[in-house]
Nucleic acid binder design. Sequence first.
DNA 1: ACTGGCCATGGAAGAATCTTCCGAAAATAA
DNA 2: TTATTTTCGGAAGATTCTTCCATGGCCAGT
Lengths: 154, 154
Amino acid sequence: MASRLDRIDLKMLRLLQNSGRLSNAELAEMVGVSAATCHRRTQRLFDEGFITGVRALVAPRRVGKGALVMVGVVLDRSTPESFASFETAIARLKFVLDCHLVAGDFDYFLKIRVGDMEDFNRIHGEQLIALPGVRQTRTFFVMKEVVDNAPLEF
Amino acid sequence: MASRLDRIDLKMLRLLQNSGRLSNAELAEMVGVSAATCHRRTQRLFDEGFITGVRALVAPRRVGKGALVMVGVVLDRSTPESFASFETAIARLKFVLDCHLVAGDFDYFLKIRVGDMEDFNRIHGEQLIALPGVRQTRTFFVMKEVVDNAPLEF
DNA sequence: ACTGGCCATGGAAGAATCTTCCGAAAATAA
DNA sequence: TTATTTTCGGAAGATTCTTCCATGGCCAGT
């Protein structure tokens, strides 16, 4: 199952990453193989898990989610149970885009999208500090999104 | 141009966000309109900027980018020129997935994908601290990706 | 070098889909 | 109500998808 990716596969991955709606015929021509081969290879990239999904990128501001906030979280205790219950709880909060367990001054880093600061303040007070085991949080409001969710380089 | 989104548009956005490769016919049936109407509405969502692109999600580990690092950056000076030159320089670094200007103890927060820690150390020494105006950086290695790049809720 | 097995490839063709046109229905305004 | 505008779905030609099959390349073992 640990199959390799040749130059054509990589090219297809890069093209699909930047234009996920390319038709099979277009993709085939761009990478220089027949439509049949391209179709087979694309399907393999999906089947073997190189591509985990295809997502339309929705403009946050256009759907009322123009505010971005980074939050550092410190837990009360550093036990496996404490981590586990925090992670279970946070997976239910749909406004959390990223949640990463990190090494350093914080236990977790969160990336959150909300409508505005007022929105965030309500959520912070009602949902974030109420999460199991949270000792303190540190909020970093994003003032300018220089690069957001850039495509992966490989 | 500030057109509204009705219930059908929102449904289409959510469906496309989670399955960007849905065919027009499938989408039409899911939201309960004809293929012609669905096609027109989808095109409008693109033309008017509600959908900014469609991206295949590539599994980072499968392409040798399994390590994730968060980095806080502090600049020497807080002048507009200083910020501008930093932002220009960082936009060229393809391993930077996120770069956000924040309010708080840091000036910028970065989200970076690399192959492994050794890889990051080299990049940190050769490229990050060499960026214009960087006084100090604080590195948070991600030990566990609990939620990464979740779809936007709206 | 020859043989046989194993894949990956491209052509072809029926099935499915896209994309546009048009008249009808619905919404809006006067 | 009437006129105007907008949105809708059916229809159909053009395009695309998806699968089947025969061909050609590659490699291991004679």
